[in-house]
C-alpha cells in the first residue's frame, strides 16, 4: 500500500487511487502519421527509475494528476501537479 501524494487531498493510500500509467498526451489524430500514432497507442516508457505518471484520486478529489515515481524503489518525488482545471483557459 503506497502513499500517493495527491496535490489536493494530500498523501493518501494507493487503494484510493487508480493508476494511469506513463503521462503522455494524445497526438493530433489528423496530422500524426500512423506509425507515430501506433507508438502513442502501444509504446510506453518503461524505465527502471523515475517515471512521470498519471494517477486518478478516485476516492478523494476525483482529479487526475501527474507525479514522478521511481519504479525501482516506489518512492515519489515532487511535484504532484493537477492537470489543468476543467473549464480553465487553454
Amino acid at each position: 500500500m503506497l502513499i500517493v501524494p495527491c496535490p489536493n487531498c494530500g498523501p493518501r493510500n494507493s487503494a484510493d487511487m487508480r493508476y494511469g500509467g506513463e503521462s503522455h498526451s494524445r497526438p493530433d489524430p489528423d496530422s500524426t502519421p500512423i506509425e507515430e500514432w501506433r507508438n502513442y497507442l502501444y509504446m510506453h516508457d518503461n524505465p527502471a527509475g523515475w517515471l512521470k505518471e498519471t494517477w486518478y484520486c478516485g476516492s478523494g478529489c476525483r482529479r487526475y494528476f501527474t507525479t514522478e515515481r521511481n519504479t525501482v524503489t516506489n518512492q515519489f518525488r515532487e511535484p504532484a501537479i493537477n492537470y489543468p482545471e476543467p473549464g480553465g483557459s487553454q
Partner: peptide, 11 residues
C-alpha cells in the same frame, strides 16, 4: 495495479 520493478511484495 501499477508498473514497478520492485519485487518487495505487498500486504
Amino acid at each position: 495495479p501499477f508498473a514497478t520493478y520492485s519485487q518487495a511484495g505487498s500486504l
